[in-house]
């Protein structure tokens, strides 16, 4: 099944082109390029909200982007069951919109972290169904505010509804303090909404799919959606 797509660019987005390349090379279809002030998104299968520093991340990461005119289109799309993938700043924006629960705080060590990290699948959803349960994915992260937080009830509800999509782990698949690079609650690297058609992910799959990348594991996410 071919996958039609759109990528939204906010002022300060800097992974929008990377997301477009990711979609184009894997799905074979050129994604629509959407500007944050646009009024409509053509009907597509997936919308990617890319990484970057939307509006400079000046108030809170993703806060101002979540007020852009295009967001109502994202909400419509997700309500009718369309896929939404928010990567890094995109994840932060999705929590600010309220499509995903919780928030992303500053990394515990207060430093920007840019390196390859390991994640593994937790609860199954549209985005990871082609990934084996014991597969350890190697995917780069690059963020200053990726420490996932939710209230106790919020966290419980996530877990009860099987919304925790990915966990940080080490290369052997163990999730421990050391592998939890940014201090996220319960090692959370990615979550979905209840309906599981919206995924927020701190690591960057669009930087791990080409033959010259350190790893090609990022392919698996789009391939899960295509199959």
């Amino acid at each position: 099944m071919p996958l039609s797509s759109a990528v939204i660019t906010f002022p300060g987005s800097n992974c929008d082109r990377d997301a477009q390349t990711y979609l184009e090379l894997i799905t074979g279809q050129v994604p629509h390029k959407i500007w944050h002030n646009d009024q409509i998104i053509p009907k597509v299968d997936i919308i990617i909200i890319p990484g970057g520093f939307s509006f400079g991340d000046y108030l809170r990461s993703g806060a101002m982007a979540s007020k852009s005119p295009i967001i109502k289109e994202v909400l419509k799309h997700s309500e009718r069951g369309g896929y939404v993938l928010g990567i890094c700043n995109g994840f932060q924006i999705l929590t600010e919109i309220g499509l995903l629960s919780g928030a992303l705080n500053r990394n515990v060590k207060l430093k920007f972290i840019a390196k390859n990290c390991h994640i593994k699948k937790n609860n199954e959803n549209f985005f990871n169904k082609k990934i084996q349960n014991d597969k350890i994915l190697s995917i780069p992260v690059a963020h200053n505010e990726g420490s996932y937080y939710n209230s106790e009830e919020g966290l419980k509800s996530l877990e009860d509804n099987e919304q925790v999509a990915f966990l940080y782990c080490d290369k052997d698949g163990n999730s421990n303090n050391e592998s939890n690079i940014n201090g996220s609650l319960n090692h959370i690297a990615g979550i979905t909404n209840k309906e599981k058609n919206v995924l927020g992910l701190m690591p960057h799959p669009e930087r791990a799919f080409q033959d010259f990348h350190q790893s090609q594991d990022g392919q698996l996410i789009l391939e899960s959606l295509i199959s």
Binding site: N14, C15, R17, D18, T21, Y22, G51, K111, F112, I113, A114, K115, P140, A142, H204, E206, R207, Q210, F212, H213, Q214
Partner: peptide, 19 residues
């Protein structure tokens, strides 16, 4: 020098071959 480099985004733009 990873203490230094790990604070710099080296893979944004998706075209990095050698970090």
């Amino acid at each position: 020098k990873s203490w230094v480099f790990d604070q710099y985004d080296s893979t944004v733009m998706g075209n990095t071959i050698n970090e």
